[in-house]
């Protein structure tokens, strides 16, 4: 496996990122409808996304549907191929692997430490496999355990996610949505991963169950020293669970900051709009904003800033230049000239 030294990522070993994403791009080709297929353009689903994820940190990725948040994490895990850019994963002490260029055999090895929890607990579990089979499959594929050791590992992880050993022989249909999501979490965690990607992991759940699963994710993070990339659209959940938040719009990160700072002092007009649109559970404060416009079409983006057509404070340069991320302070960056 080709590795890179830690010098490239700050160097000081106190605070080395677990994952360093640099200018990640994922374009999907668009073809014409004629008899002869011809490529006529690209949908720039993810466009030059860069961020760091530190050990034991939860990074939120928020934005409207179609902004590229799911595509970003899927590309990082190599469920989709990179179009451009790099993602460095801290594979062992001080050594980084570039995920975009590793070969398939190394990728299998790497996947042990990178796992995913999916959104829909009804679609992500095979209905023909028992819970025991579902949870033990990753260990069998990677030949990490067998026989009674395998059974013990499964029992252990079931207990940790709040299920019982007798659930092993049952099929997913016998479980409620919240319990199924626990099965999905157990399947991801049995590999002892370092990085867990939760793609809308709680948004399909009812409020009362959602709180249980959020607490479980928090407990597991502390117990196993996990790092999460938490993709979500529910801002109140993100505020509760995340240490830092990146806001995406039309394939780009428009603002990234520590959670409280982002919610208290948003700088990008899109972040401000997003925060203002989230309903507050308080009937004495009714604050529905007037007209926030339409989400940008990733296949047909304007030349300059993608948010400019919806932006209340756009100026002439916004229509021409794509704004780069600018420093607000060491941890807070926003892609707007007016910050």
């Amino acid at each position: 496996m080709n590795t890179v030294g830690a010098e490239a990522f700050g160097g000081n070993s106190e605070k080395l990122p677990l994952l360093a994403v640099r200018d990640l791009c994922k374009f999907f080709p668009v073809y014409n409808q004629g008899v002869i297929r011809r490529k006529i353009g690209d949908v720039k689903a993810v466009n030059k996304v860069s961020f760091d994820l530190f050990p034991n940190e939860t990074l939120g990725l928020v934005g409207e549907s179609g902004c590229g948040k799911s595509t970003t994490v899927r590309t990082i895990l190599r469920a989709l191929e990179f179009t451009g850019g790099q993602a460095f994963f801290n594979y062992e002490k001080d050594r980084y692997v570039e995920l975009g260029s590793v070969n398939n055999r190394d990728l299998v090895e790497l996947r042990k430490s990178m796992q995913m929890i999916f959104q829909d607990p009804f679609a992500s579990l095979n209905p023909r496999m028992t819970v025991g089979q579902i949870i033990s499959e990753p260990l069998q594929i990677h030949k990490l355990a067998k026989g009674s050791e395998l059974e013990d590992r499964v029992d252990e992880i079931l207990f940790e996610v709040g299920l019982k050993p007798e659930h092993k022989t049952r099929y997913p249909h016998a479980f409620s949505g919240g319990q199924r999501q626990r099965i999905g979490i157990a399947r991801a965690l049995i590999m002892n991963p370092k990085l867990v990607v939760a793609d809308e992991a709680v948004s399909a759940l009812d409020v009362s169950v959602q709180a249980q699963v959020i607490n479980l994710l928090t407990d597991l993070k502390h117990a196993h020293g996990l790092s999460y990339i938490f993709v979500a659209h529910d801002l109140s959940v993100v505020r509760h669970i995340c240490d830092r938040v990146a806001v995406m719009y039309a394939g780009r990160i428009v603002e990234i900051a520590p959670t409280e700072e982002l919610f208290e002092d948003p700088r990008h007009p899109y972040t401000k709009l997003l925060l203002a649109s989230a309903p507050i559970p308080d009937p004495t404060m009714r604050t529905l904003p007037p007209n926030p416009g339409e989400v940008a079409d990733a296949g047909n983006l304007p030349k300059g800033c993608s948010f400019a057509p919806r932006c209340g404070c756009r100026c002439e340069s916004c229509a021409e230049n794509v704004p780069e991320l600018q420093k607000v302070n060491d941890n807070h960056w926003a892609a707007c000239p007016l910050i």
């Binding site: 319990q179 409020v207 709180a211 505020r239």
Partner: peptide, 24 residues
């Protein structure tokens, strides 16, 4: 009461969300 308390941001405890035990 339980439903409202399980919304993030409604309780003063920042680490744990109060939740309704069990499921429907």
């Amino acid at each position: 009461f339980g439903l409202l308390r399980s919304l993030p941001g409604m309780s003063k405890n920042k680490d744990r969300l109060p939740s309704i035990p069990g499921s429907v």
